[in-house]
Computed example of a mutant assay.
Amino acid sequence: MVISASSSFGALESAGPALVWAIVLTFVFIECAVILGLFLPGDSMLITAGIVLANHSSGAAHVWALSAGAMIAAIFGNQVGYAIGHRSGNHILARRGGKYLNYTNLHRVNILLERYGFWAVLIARWIPWVRTLCPLVAGAAKMNHSKYTVASSLGAILWAPVLLLIGFYGGSLLNQVSWLMPAVLTAMVALLLIGTALGIRHYRQEMARPLEEVTVEEVLD
């Protein structure tokens, strides 16, 4: 049985803003706080959420409120990630042969923090895998917490709300062509679901690899 784009689109519309809120806040927090976030398609999720809200009569109110909520979730997630890294001392758990959680990536993030500090935390928000590793490495490296908080908070303001609003106002333009919105939205949601499923699979594969404990000093060498 073939499911048409219009019927899939109707199902998306009936899901309602509450589901969008739940997904966005959960994804944003996880991406900023824990290792699982390395494998989630956060940027495309935010844009897709904005497009979904563009199809609801109260979408404008929701997208602005959700922008504030996503910003808070990102800031809170950053603090949790920093606390996890700080609690680990200067020891960071990598995965031998890992695709993302490996010595090389930890080295890159630590070098960025060492050289650019505040600006590295701010810019890291726009680089998917760095976005998740940065709080953990910053905490383990004992980066000044006040400086980190200011930079990560500014980054949160310039990330989640911007992508949500791009999706929302872009979706409003798509609505001007009757067939374009259902096709684009259905495709984006399908890609988001596939990306999330693959991400969780890759996360499990990554966590199954042997642990490799390194110190902050080692990844700076």
Score class of each variant (00 low, 15 high):
A5N: 14
A11E: 13
L12N: 12
A15P: 12
A15C: 12
A15T: 02
P17K: 02
P17I: 03
V24H: 01
V24F: 01
T26Y: 12
F27Q: 11
F29Y: 13
E31V: 09
C32N: 15
A33Y: 14
V34G: 08
L36I: 12
L38I: 08
L38N: 03
L38Q: 05
L40S: 04
L40H: 02
P41V: 11
G42M: 15
S44F: 06
M45A: 11
M45C: 13
L46C: 07
L46E: 05
T48D: 14
T48Q: 14
G50D: 12
I51N: 01
L53I: 03
S57Q: 11
S57M: 14
S58N: 05
A60S: 07
A60D: 11
A61G: 12
V63Q: 01
V63A: 01
W64M: 06
S67V: 03
A68M: 04
G69K: 10
A70I: 02
A70M: 00
A70C: 00
M71P: 09
I72S: 03
A73N: 01
I75R: 02
F76A: 12
G77E: 00
N78M: 01
Q79I: 00
A83P: 08
N90I: 08
H91E: 03
H91V: 05
I92A: 00
G98F: 04
L101Q: 01
L101F: 01
L106T: 00
L106P: 04
H107K: 13
R108N: 14
R108K: 15
V109R: 06
L112F: 15
Y116H: 08
Y116V: 05
F118K: 05
W119Y: 03
A120W: 03
A120N: 02
V121Y: 01
V121L: 00
L122K: 00
L122V: 00
R125A: 07
W126S: 10
T132N: 09
T132L: 08
L133G: 02
C134L: 10
P135N: 05
P135C: 08
A138K: 08
G139S: 10
G139M: 04
A141E: 04
M143L: 14
M143R: 05
K147T: 05
Y148I: 06
Y148K: 06
T149F: 09
S152R: 15
S152F: 15
S152W: 15
S153G: 15
L154W: 13
G155N: 07
G155K: 14
P161C: 11
V162G: 14
L165R: 02
Y169H: 13
G170Y: 13
G171C: 04
G171S: 10
L174Q: 10
N175P: 00
N175L: 09
Q176M: 07
M181Y: 01
P182C: 06
A183T: 12
V184H: 03
L185N: 03
T186I: 07
A187H: 05
A187M: 08
M188S: 02
L192S: 11
L192M: 12
A197W: 06
Y203W: 11
R204S: 06
M207F: 07
M207K: 08
R209Q: 02
R209M: 02
P210I: 02
P210S: 01
E212K: 05
V214K: 04
V214D: 00
V216N: 08
L220Y: 14
D221Q: 11
